[in-house]
Design a protein around this nucleic acid. Structure first.
Lengths: 292, 292
DNA sequence: TCGATTCCTTGACCATAGTCAGAGAAAACC
DNA sequence: GGTTTTCTCTGACTATGGTCAAGGAATCGA
């Protein structure tokens, strides 16, 4: 307990202060955070507001100020002209790159004085601390596959498969998993969210007395390494077991090496192909019920 | 690198914000920090200023405000009437206890959702992160044993021995280590400091071709577990070796179990008593020079 | 004993962060 | 087509954190 308190004080205040100073570089911290959060691709003002949890009036003023400095432009969103969309100007983009660089510098300054062995231990311990602290904040819920969070996850999932598969990914070629197959009574769709943002998903298709099928398992790139995949996997298994499944099976592509490693270490055994998914290279199955 | 950056963002901002809110409880954060830092025993205003790194005017105003709330009294220091000394009133003491409780609650809230195995891992990893981050910030210097930092360390060292030894500790009974024996050319006195505050010390008495003697090794209670003892020990050994010693020896009391464990694991072997230190229960020696 | 220095206080000032109510424009609802 | 809701902006206001310079009281140094 005392240990935790001291950690909070030392690490939080010391690094936090440094972090802020590095990020701010002469600019009010609020502006720097907004600049950062807008991102390369631009961002709707309402999204900024919810992500940074700022008052509408305050954010508006921050944007005006950034606009006056020539760092961002704010225009109407193409789809809904009430919504305003902030984009970085070229100068803003340069500025953001600079912030990025400084953030890297800061990280490097922690690692530099250490030996390579110590560096590894530091990074490993940091990951562990983060994983355990964040784990308590992640919520996994059953949602409808047509709800916005689920659609967001699926969109990201497909985009990632398209990037990673050697052949790209075309959903119309793959075996489908339709919305009605991933909601009750045919199945379930789980979404993990952190501070209200969806960061991982997975679906189960029930097949009566046959093994249930695991589909659409995805973890956001910036949430990896937190043990979230494993947690999602066991939540899906638990959901399947609760709905009468005695086993779960799945197919996967050979490029998804981390996923394959995770399946193996979670008790999945490779089995012969049980379907003709064109993108499938490996098929796995795990029997449920031993743990309950 | 990315890992370190993410750790900084997540842990720092998330916990930092929580920590501040917990600590503040309706009061400006600045006031809460001052209230905390004054401590049960009271504190000179100048010390507060340097510890919290606040502007003199600003701190003065904060104290006025705490005084107006009846939490603090500020009076002249007994030794130097320019210096002002802040003390907690009864109400202030209650308030500080409350802050203490909340800080505990916060720490508990991190641990609570975890299994006991996870808790252990979290605490261990936090200690590791802190140790490695702080290690880079600690400076070990050779100082004169009569300098204020050295005197502070020695004072704390004796107070601790007095608390821990079954018989209490009376410096006039023990074998002495006089200031001139711990400065060149007879010996050396090392102090480790973090942000300018001394947090550990140790001394070497040289004996020509005979083994050097290690004395006065101490680590501040709130800096333990950071690997500082081991670091101080190897700095002392290095200093001794640099000044011609081929071996180091020391005596210690049986109640100092962590120290004894550290000596053993650092390559010290127990040897027969080489002096008649009345508080000595164990005598150790280590040959130097193999590592250089 | 007479500056010089140290320590603190006070008044004047400033920037950042944030809140709140009102209003205008666009979209959604019925 | 009129009403309601959503989204944003603006102006007015507040609190917090912080800086700076002047000055008074105590102490130090010669």
């Amino acid at each position: 307990m005392a240990r935790v308190r001291r950690f909070n004080r030392t690490v939080t205040q010391r690094i936090g202060a440094l972090d802020d100073r590095y990020l701010a570089r002469g600019r009010p911290l609020g502006e720097a955070r907004v600049l950062w959060e807008i991102g390369e691709a631009g961002c709707d003002v309402r999204t900024l507001r919810s992500r940074l949890d700022l008052d509408a009036g305050y954010l508006s003023r921050l944007l005006r100020s950034l606009e006056a400095d020539g760092l961002v432009t704010v225009g109407a969103s193409p789809t809904d002209r009430r919504v305003r969309r902030a984009r970085l100007s070229r100068k803003g983009r340069r500025e953001r790159t600079e912030l990025d660089r400084r953030s890297d510098d800061l990280a490097r300054s922690f690692l530099e004085p250490l030996s390579s062995d110590e560096r590894q231990r530091l990074v490993r311990s940091m990951a562990e601390v983060e994983r355990l602290l964040v784990a308590a904040l992640v919520e996994i819920d059953v949602v409808d596959p047509d709800d916005p969070p689920a659609r967001h996850c699926l969109h990201e999932y497909f985009a990632e498969l398209d990037r990673r598969f050697d052949t790209g990914y075309d959903p119309s070629v793959a075996l489908p998993a339709l919305a009605h197959e991933m909601r009750m009574p045919a199945g379930g769709f789980l979404v993990a969210s952190l501070h209200g943002e969806p960061i991982a998903c997975g679906a189960i298709k029930l097949h009566g007395r046959e093994p249930a099928e695991l589909k659409r398992m995805w973890v956001a790139a910036d949430a990896r390494g937190l043990g979230l995949g494993r947690r999602m996997l066991s939540s899906l298994e638990a959901w399947a077991a609760d709905h009468g499944a005695h086993a779960v099976r799945l197919e996967t592509n050979r490029t998804l090496v981390e996923a394959i490693a995770m399946y193996r270490s979670s008790g999945y055994r490779e089995v012969p192909a049980f379907n003709d998914e064109p993108y499938g290279d490996h098929w796995f199955e795990k029997r449920l019920g031993t743990q309950r």
